[in-house]
Amino acid sequence: MSGAAKTARPGGRPAGGQGADYASLALNLVGLVAGVAIWWALTAGGAVGLPPPPQVAARFGDVIASGQLATDIASSLVRVLTGFLLGVILAIPVGFVMGWYKVARSLIEPYLQFFRMIPPLAIIPLAIVTMGIDETPKIFVIFLASFLACVVATYQGVISVDKTMINAARVLGAKDMTIFLRVIIPASTPFILVGVRIGLGSAWATLVAAELIAAQSGLGFRMQQAQLYYDLPTIFVSLITIGLLGLAMDRILLVIERRLTVWQERV
Rank of each mutant, 00 (worst) to 15 (best):
G12A: 13
I118Q: 10
G61K: 12
A5T: 05
G218R: 06
F236L: 08
I166K: 11
T206R: 06
A226E: 02
I256P: 01
E265F: 07
D134E: 14
I185G: 01
R266D: 04
L228S: 04
D72Y: 03
G99N: 09
I108P: 04
R251E: 12
G243P: 13
G95D: 03
L86R: 05
G17F: 04
A168N: 11
R13G: 06
I198A: 15
M98Y: 08
T71L: 13
G19K: 14
A5L: 13
R170A: 11
L90Q: 01
A168M: 15
A34C: 13
V267F: 09
F180H: 05
T130D: 00
A4G: 00
D176R: 15
A149K: 13
G218F: 02
L200T: 11
S160N: 14
T71Q: 12
Q227T: 02
G201E: 07
A226W: 02
G195L: 13
S146L: 10
L112H: 04
G201H: 06
P119H: 09
G19R: 15
A91S: 09
A214K: 14
R182K: 14
L86Y: 02
G3D: 12
F191P: 05
D250R: 09
V161D: 07
A215C: 05
R222D: 04
E109M: 15
G218V: 07
A58E: 10
G173Y: 09
W39A: 12
P51R: 09
I92N: 01
F221T: 03
F140V: 10
A26E: 00
V88M: 08
T234P: 03
V237Y: 01
D162G: 10
G12T: 12
I89F: 09
T234W: 00
V255H: 07
